[in-house]
Write a protein that binds this DNA or RNA. Structure first.
Lengths: 144, 144
DNA sequence: ATTTATGCAAATCGTTTGCAAACCT
DNA sequence: AGGTTTGCAAACGATTTGCATAAAT
């Protein structure tokens, strides 16, 4: 029950003065079992909380850094566990046909280049980059 | 009046059996003058069409490849002229504080690497990448 | 003349919020 | 008890749509 993930989530919530309730554990579990970002609708189907609780708790988890909000090409919000809590840094494949979002990773050398670019841009524009987002847009295997 | 841009837009619309009406020209002009992606609200303020016409025409322009929809971190839809119609390929700086989206470019060498990654991913996952999206997320000069 | 675009107002959809009851410590 | 979270139902805000009129070819 008390494995690494839930322990880490508990700490993040606690740091923020929040409780790790049953509903929140439920959400984390649903997101853990998904191998891709889920829409609110998918989460509602998979979990067993009312809408308002799901949305409210996703917001809490997001502000504590447990959950991350992912932008696709449609207007639906999608959520995944923060990278700190899961294996590793990854990027998204976004299907422009059906909206499906899935994960992929890139070579470390490319990640270094991206970091260098972020640094250059900061110098040139005064924008302070904290993260980057690299997505491939196209047709998923289904919509190919 | 009939400069390159409007000519090109007219062709794209025509190819799709659509007319280049006053309202559509108005939208293209508003987007041309902006140096960054605009939200629907900003477009409504700048242009002079009713909401429904603006949204409907943005949808038409998008499906003809004249306008491109940009995802930020907030839920607001943002629009810009398609890259084919403007100078060049670019990426976005997205402020996580105020949502502002602005443009930047990266070295060609990085673009080549991105293309190579897209190709590799296609082989490995069967996903057909058509475009990519590289955004930097952080604080803009204002919200720094 | 016939097809397509417009503009108003009403509807829709995802998401958020007010409030009273249930929960945790 | 004291403050937080829950769950229902109602509210919200951005975007979309029905329909009758106006415009374009």
């Amino acid at each position: 029950m008390t494995d690494d993930l839930h322990g880490a989530v508990g700490v993040l919530l606690g740091d923020d003065g929040q409780r790790y309730t049953v509903g929140r554990r439920n959400l984390v579990e649903v997101l853990r079992q998904a191998e891709r970002p889920l829409t609110a609708a998918e989460i509602l189907e998979a979990g067993s909380l009312p809408q308002s609780s799901a949305y409210r708790n996703l917001a809490v988890l997001e502000s504590c850094g447990v959950v991350h909000r992912v932008a696709g090409t449609d207007e639906l919000a999608r959520f995944e566990l923060a990278e700190d809590l899961t294996a590793h840094h990854h990027h998204h494949l976004i299907c422009t046909e059906c909206g499906l979002v899935s994960d992929f990773t890139v070579p470390d050398s490319l990640e270094s280049d991206l970091a260098a670019v972020a640094h250059r841009v900061a110098l040139e524009t005064g924008f302070r980059a904290e993260h980057h987002r690299l997505d491939l847009l196209g047709r998923c295997v289904h919509c190919g």
